[in-house]
Amino acid sequence: MEDIAQELLNGSRLALSRAITAIENEYDNATAIMKKLYPHTGHAYVLGITGPPGAGKSTLTDKLAKEYRKQGKTVGIVAIDPTSPFSGGAILGDRIRMNSLTLDEGVFIRSMGTRGSLGGLSHKTADAVKAMDAFGMDVIFVETVGVGQSEVDIVKAADTTMVVLIPGMGDDIQAIKAGILEIGDIFAINKADHDGADKLVTELNMMLDLDGVMKEWRPPIIKAVANQNIGVTELVETFKKHHDHIVSSGQLTQRRTERTKNEMLDLLSSNIGSYITRNIVDTGKIDKMVEDIKAHKIDPYTVVSEILQNMLK
C-alpha cells in the first residue's frame, strides 16, 4: 500500500486497519501517517467504557453500537485486553461478543493488547482512535481492560466515560467504587437481572451524594441487562445528554484541550526517551558515563545537562 493515510482518507477499510497496525507496532511510517491524519480528526464523539472484568462491557458496547447504527451513525470500536506480562501474548476476547457487528459496513472493530501499559489502555489507543476519527467514524467506543482502581487512563482519552458495575461484587466494590467515582460521567448497573442491582444503585447514589454537592453534572445511574438489550436506548439518550452538557458548559473544549496537552507531553517524553535509547544506551555511551560518574570524575547532574544540551542542538 503506497500511501496508507491517503487511502484511509479515501475510505479504505484495509488502510484503516493497516494504519492502526503501523501505529501499534511503531513502524517507521507511523509518524507520517499520523501527521497526515491529524487535520481530519476531532469530529468523533469518543465514549470510554470501563469497569471490572466480566461486567459486560463488550456485550453492552455491542448493543450500544447497534443502537447508534439505527440512528445512522457510523461506529468505531477499540477494545483493549490485557497482555500477559510473562509471555507477551494476549487473548483478545472482546470481539467475540460483537460478532454480529462484523459484517456491518458502518462498524469497524479493532482489538488491542495492553502491551505493557498499566492504565487500562494501550500506549497506542489514542492514536488508533484518531485513525478511526479521521476515517470518519461518528462515534468511537474505547473498551478498557477490566479495571481495578488505578487504571483510569480512559478519562483522558474519552469525551464521556461510562463505568459499568454489576451487583454481587461483595467487598471489592468498596475499593473499586472509591477509585471510579471521580471518573464516571455515567454509571451503568449491568446484569440487573441478578439480585442486588437496586441495592447497588442505592449505595452508589449515597456515595455520589457525598461526593457531588458542588458538581454541575450529577452522574446518572442506569440499570441495564446487556444481553437482553435492556437499558440500552436509555443509555444512548444519557450519552446524548452528557454530550450536550459538556458542549454547552464548555467542558468538552476544556477536556479536549487537556487531552491535547497530555498527548503532546506524552509524545514529547516518549520521543525524548527513544532519542536517549538510540543515542546513549544503544551506542554504549552510557557505560563510559556511568564509569566516570562512579569514579567521581564527573557528577551525574552535569552529564544529564550535557545530554540535554546536545539533544536540543
Partner: peptide, 28 residues
Amino acid sequence: LRDAGFEVVYTGLRQTPEQIAEAAMQED
C-alpha cells in the same frame, strides 16, 4: 499461541467465511 507470545483473537463457533475474512481484515 497466546503462551507463545502471540496476540490471539478467537471467533467462537458458527462463523461464516465472510465474517472470518472481515474480522481478519479489521484485526489486520
